[in-house]
């Protein structure tokens, strides 16, 4: 039994990690005033690009860097659309999700000549735990940056009252651009963790809604980095629970159990909203 609890605890942290990266990206983006519905796609872009780069260079570290870069690139795309063209951020994010998922599927056929999944590539192997620790460290760091540094104050001001940022002599659009690029980079890192951290390949649909679970975590965590991280650990627990229980209790409906993390996110979403407040200018083009 003790062994089971240790397994569950360890697996919870591992399953929470990619969601934490995406959720931190969600926090910083929404704090700056841009809703990033495209987190899911940016994760897929990161996951796929990491595999391609690792395949080409045989270096998982370069793969990781490429994954972060791909996420940042799509973050820039959203930022550009949101700040320059004042697009409907939700519609634009949905477009990015389709582009990334479709692009990865297109690339799978083109590069690996097989639909569904890539070949196996060099992965981070056992050193993936560094990224698990880093996720929690980044959460603490981001909390400090957002609430204790001038840059953090400016980001939050862009999301609450961009006009005030202008009157302070700063450009909220530029701040939003930085924030959304960072958001994409974090989501890309989360995706790369999925593909070359936990596993060693990319398969279609492997992000499985984690970008949206991360958005639920942002709301549940009241737009605070640490709060969102706690929410991610809860969702990670339910994902881990599903794996651990499957092997242990035969009568549990295995397929229905896969719905567990999503149901947890739904309940969290319904349970907390109404009592929390989004940044005032969140999703409002400036």
């Amino acid at each position: 039994m003790n062994e089971l609890i240790v397994t569950l605890f360890a697996l919870t942290l591992v399953k929470a990690t990619p969601i934490i990266y995406a959720a931190l990206g969600g926090v910083i983006s929404e704090r700056s005033g841009v809703i990033n519905i495209g987190l899911e796609g940016m994760m897929a872009a990161g996951a796929f690009t990491a595999v391609v780069a690792s395949f080409a260079t045989h270096s998982p570290i370069l793969g990781l860097a490429a994954g972060i870069g791909a996420g940042a690139l799509f973050g820039y795309l959203l930022a550009f659309a949101a700040t320059r063209f004042k697009v409907d951020q939700i519609v634009a994010g949905t477009g990015i999700n389709l582009i990334c998922a479709g692009g990865a599927a297109y690339g799978l056929v083109l590069l690996f000549n097989q639909p569904g999944a890539s070949v196996q590539v060099a992965s981070l192997g056992s050193s993936y735990w560094v990224l698990v620790v880093l996720a929690f460290a980044l959460a603490a760091l981001l909390q400090w940056v957002l609430y204790r540094t001038p840059w953090g104050l400016r980001i939050r001001a862009s999301g609450e009252n961009p006009s005030a940022v202008v009157s302070a002599g700063l450009n909220p659009l530029l701040l939003r651009t930085y924030a959304v690029i960072l958001s994409g980079a974090l989501a890309g890192l989360g995706g790369a963790f999925l593909s070359i951290g936990e596993l060693n390949l990319y398969s279609d649909g492997m992000t499985a809604g984690r970008g949206f679970i991360a958005l639920a975590a942002v709301i549940f965590g009241r737009w605070h980095p640490v709060g969102a991280t706690v929410a991610c650990v809860i969702f990670g627990f339910f994902e881990a629970l599903q794996y651990v229980l499957q092997g242990q209790i035969a009568w549990l409906p295995a397929n229905a159990m896969q719905a567990l993390p999503y149901i947890a996110a739904l309940i969290a979403l319904a349970g907390v909203t109404g009592r929390v407040r989004a940044p005032a200018a969140d999703g409002v083009p400036f």
Binding site: L77, G95, I99, G102, A105, V109
Partner: peptide
């Protein structure tokens, strides 16, 4: 799957 990339790009453009 190229089709889905194109759908996404169209949505992105229409988001304006």
């Amino acid at each position: 799957d190229a089709i889905h990339v194109i759908e996404g790009l169209i949505i992105l453009v229409l988001a304006a």
